[in-house]
Write a protein that binds this DNA or RNA. Structure first.
Length: 595
DNA sequence: GCCGTTTTCGGCCCGACTGTTTTCAGTCG
């Protein structure tokens, strides 16, 4: 695990353990925030770990945290963490993962009943001894029991590519319900995060009961967690929603419905889109301007009245649109994908971020020659449908044996076939390329004289993904410096929630990519999204070229483009910095410049 | 523990819902 990730995990654990031992809640929050900014930080903190000035320049890191980071760099541990870990059993921390169980209850279970693990908790539920605790009734116990079953069966975060179609189906269903005038999803899905904890759906309606019924009584609902006036919460099984997710049929997800008056639509959309951290900063900003912000709107602040302003009939300063609220707070409109409290409040104008419509070329695709499902011509037809001017055919190289990688002789024939297809197909340029393995030693999988024949070269790591960071960096730097390489494909090789991939020094890769005029890829497949958002942000700030590719294997893969674009947006990627947006002339001039 | 366009001390976001209560604590987002 990287320095930043290890450190962030320690701070997360410290935050939880402080809470469980009754520490001041602001100290608890400060540790949680430190964990977040450390995890989100795009460059490795180890080189500056002994430089308190550089560390405290990062928002959320003060003197105390800087000292702990230095201690971790020096000794590999943090004394405060170890001291806390000596007092809080690991199983107690684990209980915090049970939905509906928070720190107060876990503390109570631990201190009053000596329950120190989920296993012991199950025993206490079975023998009924848990009922002795205050505020612990039959219904609460039943909910805890179901929550444990939920996290033990699935309960994991879902890939954006799985959650998005479910959310779109939900929105379509609600829009088809009598009385519904507006409907949209919000939450981390709208922010384009790579994985999703739950789905938030907002509706405005003239018939609230019909909306509640449409939401809570659908056949895919396995449990109704809440059904209130303004909010319903359900657990869904995914196989009830179209059966498109064969591998995910075990999966379940929570979905929340919020009933919103039209007049508060913007405030609610903003509130439920988050992120939580972004919202906190917005509300602080509102207070500083003598106003208060909630999901009903932005209101004048009245310190003398604790009744929420919307209940007193106070007219809102702004509430109907997100843009009007940002404006009233003296901010430009901030697109959902940048709302992470990662510096967006310093923006003077709404950034022009990349959009799906900007993409004009797919530069990473596979055909039946290796492990794809389509012929060259079939893939070209799909690319044409999207209005692309260029499609690069980049089948696997020889070392990718399981993917039917091409031996040198087959590649030579394949190049001829692509060139012939390019002559035959109108309206699009087909490039003869290859996705060449970056071998464990950093060398490429074909000889240079063969590579020289290719119009485009995507170099990607496929094996040896457990290499240590230093080794991974060396390997990738060698590939980047190869003069024939255009693009580094899925640079870390990670699979979201499945395989961590490599953790190279991303700042070094970015610097080398700029020096050697190489583009780093955002692989748009929702299982990869590699580069990830924070890496993109670092690359964008450094001025590195980015490619967004679908890594096409099947017809539907072209539809993954939007996930790559969302990841680009989360990295603040402007269209001109992404080579897939360039017009034909500019793109092909650049490709030829490396031949 | 962090932070400063009123502050280097004294603050630190806001409301809905559930389950257990009989006025509210805990959790969530």
């Amino acid at each position: 695990m990287s320095f930043n990730a290890s450190l962030a995990n320690l701070f997360d654990r410290m935050s939880a353990m402080l809470e469980l031992t009754g520490a001041d809640r602001f100290r608890v929050n400060a540790h949680a925030k430190a964990a977040r900014v450390i995890r989100d930080h795009a460059t490795d903190l180890e080189p500056i770990a002994r430089d308190p000035k550089a560390l405290t320049a990062i928002d959320g890191i003060g003197k105390g945290t800087a000292a702990k980071i230095a201690e971790f760099a020096e000794t590999g541990s943090i004394a405060e963490h170890d001291e806390l870990a000596g007092r809080v059993p690991p199983g107690v921390l684990e209980m915090l993962n049970i939905p509906g169980l928070g720190p107060k209850t876990v503390k109570l279970l631990w201190e009053e009943k000596g329950i120190e693990s989920i296993h012991a908790l199950k025993d206490a539920i079975e023998d009924g001894s848990i009922l002795d605790l205050p505020r612990m009734g039959a219904k609460t116990v039943e909910n805890i029991k179901e929550s444990i079953a939920f996290i033990e069966s699935s309960g994991k975060r879902l890939h954006i590519g799985v959650a998005m179609p479910v959310a779109e189906a939900l929105v379509a269903r609600m829009l088809n319900t009598a009385g519904v005038t507006r409907c949209a999803f919000a939450g981390s899905l709208r922010r384009g995060k790579e994985s999703i904890g739950d789905i938030d759906v907002l509706v405005s309606t003239t018939d609230p009961e019909a909306a509640r019924a449409a939401f809570c009584e659908h056949s895919s609902v396995t449990k109704v967690l809440a059904r209130g006036e303004h909010k319903c919460s359900v657990r869904l099984s995914l196989d009830g929603l179209g059966g498109r997710f064969a591998a995910e049929t075990e999966a379940a997800i929570q979905a929340d419905l919020r009933l919103i008056p039209e007049s508060s639509w913007g405030a609610a959309l903003m509130y439920f889109t988050g992120s939580k951290e972004h919202n906190v900063r917005l509300r602080e900003r509102a207070l500083a301007k003598g106003m208060t912000l909630n999901e009903w709107g932005l209101f004048p602040e009245d310190r003398n009245d604790s009744t929420p302003p919307q209940q007193r009939g106070v007219p809102a300063v702004a509430s109907e649109t997100e843009a009007s609220i940002y404006e009233a707070l003296g901010l430009p409109f901030l697109p959902p994908t940048v709302r992470e409290d990662r510096g967006e409040f310093d923006l003077k104008h709404t950034p022009r971020l990349i959009e799906v419509a900007d993409i004009k070329a797919e530069l990473h695709s596979h055909t039946v020659a290796s492990d794809g499902e389509m012929t060259i011509e079939e893939s070209a037809a799909k690319a044409l449908e999207r209005g692309f001017h260029t499609l690069a055919i980049t089948d696997h190289s020889q070392s990718s044996a399981v993917a039917n990688g091409l031996k040198p002789e087959r590649l030579r024939e394949h190049i001829k076939r692509v060139r012939a297809a390019n002559e035959a197909v109108d309206g699009i340029t087909l490039l003869a390329g290859s996705e060449v393995d970056i071998l464990v030693d950093g060398n490429l999988d074909y000889d240079d004289d063969l590579l020289q024949m290719l119009d485009i070269l995507v170099a990607s790591p496929h094996a040896g993904l457990k290499a240590r960071p230093a080794q991974a960096t060396k390997r990738l730097l060698k590939a980047i410096s190869h003069p024939l390489v255009h693009i580094i494909g899925h640079p870390t090789g990670r699979l979201i929630e499945r395989r961590p991939g490599m953790e190279p020094a991303m700042d070094e890769l970015i610097a080398a990519a700029i020096e050697h005029d190489v583009a780093l890829e955002i692989n748009a497949h929702w299982m990869r999204l590699d580069l990830r958002d924070t890496h993109v942000r670092a690359a964008v700030e450094a001025g590195c070229k980015i490619a967004i590719n679908c890594d096409v294997h099947a017809p539907g893969d072209y539809d993954n483009l939007r996930y790559g674009v969302l990841t680009g947006q989360r990295g603040w990627l402007p269209p001109e910095q992404c080579i897939n947006t360039w017009d034909h002339q500019k793109l092909h001039d650049w490709l030829r410049s490396k031949r």
